[in-house]
Amino acid sequence: MTSSSLTPVSASYAQALLAAQQACGQQNYPRGALYVVATPIGNLADISLRALHVLQLADLIACEDTRHTQALLRAYGIDKPPVQMLALHQHNEAQAAQAVLERLRQGLRVAYVSDAGTPAISDPGARLVADARQAGLPVLPLPGASSITTVLSVAGLTLDAQHPDGFVFAGFLPSKSGERHTAVQALAGEARAVVLLEAPHRIEALATALAMLGARAVTVGRELTKQFEEIATLAAQDFPAWLAQDSNRLRGEFALVLHPAPVTLASGPDRRVLQMLMAELPLKTAVKLAAEITGESRNALYELALMLKAGKP
């Protein structure tokens, strides 16, 4: 994910580099392999020991922005000459990927990093990975920071009877207002939680669009892991006003979780269909068939089935 700045934690990472060597030096890092390396989304201390080791070991580092990555490497005390750096971004990924594949065929270790976070999700890298795999070349992931998992971890989502289906990742919604409005209308019918990303210059437009979802909860993560990190959960209809309360809230990168839509319990004929099926079938099978027959939400029927089984009215 994108990152407007990096928050330094220490002036020297010499001990971290030594720890990386001690922890990872005996592990196997094959030649001719592409290493997809996650880097911090803001706080330099969030780098992994394995990432530090591979970034030192790599014969070539392909990256979204060579200047940004050079600054990142130097912050850790890693110095790579320009000849060991290759720009690979959304505008040249197809061509640059072929250059990387040639280096891999020569037996070089190549690391790929985006500007921040885990590559190939909302950042470049997916085409490179696909081309490498199609060519039969090994691709090895080095897990680490991601704004997606970071914001989910503080959203307080629970997988329960009402919301058993997890979340979906939607990334950046369309920039054009009409297309964005249509996308939000589609999200209104999504029963699962939805993770969104947004840049500061478009956050007000996104907030206005999401306000149509009324009381549906949104967790807003701004400048995650950085000095001025801010996390808030509020009703979608209150999002524009929340932004307007403080001009600083328009700054930085955003990761958001649109919480699952509240479940409305079925009633009337739908309830009777479910009760009849529950009398003859296992609960999950009864819920599945009731949803197919009535068109009612499976989540709502499952919640109702649990209440009926517990003897609640």
Rank of each mutant, 00 (worst) to 15 (best):
S10N: 05
A11N: 06
A14T: 12
A14Y: 13
Q21R: 14
Q22S: 14
A23K: 02
C24D: 10
G25Y: 00
G32C: 02
A33D: 09
A38M: 10
T39L: 05
P40S: 09
D46C: 13
I47S: 04
R50D: 03
A51K: 03
A51T: 01
A58N: 07
A58G: 04
A58P: 01
I61S: 09
E64G: 09
H68Y: 13
Q70N: 09
A71N: 15
L72M: 08
L72S: 06
A75G: 15
G77H: 05
K80A: 04
K80D: 01
Q84N: 14
M85Y: 06
L88G: 11
H89L: 05
Q90D: 05
H91C: 12
Q95S: 13
A96F: 03
A97S: 14
V100F: 09
R103N: 13
R105H: 15
Q106I: 08
Q106K: 03
V110S: 09
A111T: 03
V113T: 10
D115C: 11
G117D: 06
T118A: 02
S122M: 04
D123K: 11
D123G: 06
P124W: 06
P124S: 14
P124H: 07
A126G: 09
R127A: 14
A130I: 12
D131C: 15
D131H: 08
A132E: 07
A132T: 04
A132N: 11
L142D: 09
L142A: 03
S146Y: 05
I148W: 00
T150F: 00
T150C: 15
S153V: 14
S153A: 12
S153P: 01
V154M: 00
A155V: 13
D160E: 14
D160N: 13
H163S: 15
F167M: 06
F167W: 06
F169D: 14
G171W: 10
L173R: 08
L173M: 09
G178R: 00
R180S: 09
L187N: 07
A191F: 02
R192Y: 11
V194R: 01
L197V: 13
E198A: 05
A199H: 04
L206W: 07
A211D: 13
M212S: 14
G214Q: 02
R216F: 12
V218P: 00
V218L: 13
T219Q: 07
V220N: 04
G221L: 04
T225F: 07
T225D: 08
Q227K: 15
F228D: 10
E230T: 10
A232L: 10
A235H: 03
A235P: 00
A235W: 09
P240T: 07
P240Q: 13
A244L: 08
D246M: 05
L250G: 06
L250W: 05
G252A: 06
E253D: 09
E253V: 02
A255Q: 11
V257D: 05
V257Y: 00
V257L: 02
H259W: 00
A261L: 01
L265E: 07
S267M: 12
D270P: 02
D270Q: 05
R272V: 14
V273A: 13
V273W: 00
L274R: 05
Q275A: 15
M276A: 15
M278S: 06
A279E: 06
V287N: 04
K288H: 03
A291R: 06
A291V: 05
T294Y: 05
R298N: 11
L306F: 11
L306T: 08
A310I: 01
P313R: 11
P313F: 03
